[in-house]
Simulated scan of single mutants.
Amino acid sequence: MATRGRPGPRRTLSEDELLAAALELLDSEGQLSIRGIAAKVGVAPNAVYTYFPDKSAVIRALVEKLLGESDTGAFTDETKPWRDRIEALALGVRERLVAHPSAAGLLMSAPMDGPRTTALNERLLDVLIGAGLDPADAARATYLLIVYVLGAIALEVADETDPGPLPPEEDRITRRRATFDQIPAEIFPRSAAAAPTMARFISTDQYLWGLRRLLDGLE
């Protein structure tokens, strides 16, 4: 079993610098390690342990960073309609994770219970209760929306094998269309006919279509 390094003697870096290095590592290599983060910032691994006791702590902090940064803009604007606020949040989360697709998987495996993600959850509950849901239904709706947003993003980035930001949306749709156009219509006629629509399952339009249907049901 690997042993954790001893804490470094001085705090010469910031957590934000180390998390930025972690994201760079994910974008370039698709995986994380304490040694890799240390190499990115030019320090010994022990210096990283001064801030994070292990890799799981780095992952938790990255989840906090990526989701916490979405708790801004139109989502926080109480003068906007509740549906517009939730759409803004969903689009913000997608934008951040599409820029760092290797990080998307972290959100499916790491707990989302830090202070920033809890504050985000609190604000989302407040929006839904303000829209007329009772507290229990608002809690269920919050979970439903999280499952939809993270699930849709996870399926979107799963198509890509290379780390780093995804190619432009239309390029990815064109590539998917070429794959779906190979479905034999004589065996799967409905799937073949639906190929143009299925190719766009990873599009912003599809993402918002699903989100809006969920919001219709909640409303």
Rank of each mutant, 00 (worst) to 15 (best):
S191I: 05
P189L: 09
N121S: 14
L166S: 13
A192K: 08
S203G: 10
R175F: 02
Y207K: 06
T174S: 08
A158Q: 06
I153A: 00
L145E: 02
Q206L: 03
R190D: 05
R172V: 04
G130H: 00
R212Q: 05
W209N: 15
P165G: 07
I183N: 03
L208C: 12
A178N: 07
G151Y: 00
L120Q: 04
L145K: 03
L166E: 14
L145P: 05
G151A: 01
D126V: 11
F188K: 14
G210R: 09
A193K: 15
T179I: 12
R175H: 11
I187T: 13
L120H: 01
A195S: 14
P165Q: 12
V157C: 04
P167K: 14
Y148D: 02
P184S: 06
P196T: 01
L120N: 07
G164S: 01
L208E: 13
A199E: 05
D181F: 09
I183H: 06
M198A: 15
D159K: 11
D159F: 10
L155G: 08
V127F: 03
Q182N: 04
A141W: 06
L120V: 01
Y207E: 00
D171E: 14
L166F: 00
E186M: 04
F201A: 11
L211P: 11
L128V: 03
T118R: 15
D137L: 13
A119I: 05
G130I: 00
D137C: 10
V127E: 00
E169H: 04
L120C: 08
D159S: 09
D159T: 11
A194G: 04
V157S: 05
A152K: 07
N121V: 03
D162G: 09
P196Q: 13
A141Q: 03
P189I: 07
G151D: 01
D205E: 11
I153N: 10
L211M: 08
L145M: 09
R190G: 12
A178I: 02
W209D: 15
D134F: 08
I146H: 14
P184Y: 13
R212K: 07
A154M: 02
T117S: 09
V149G: 03
R175D: 13
L155T: 14
G164E: 04
T174D: 15
P167Y: 02
A138H: 13
D205Q: 13
A193E: 14
T142L: 12
R212C: 10
R200A: 09
V157R: 08
G164W: 01
F201V: 12
L208S: 11
D205N: 08
D126A: 15
R116K: 15
A131T: 03
P189H: 05
R200P: 01
R190H: 12
A154E: 07
A193G: 15
R140F: 13
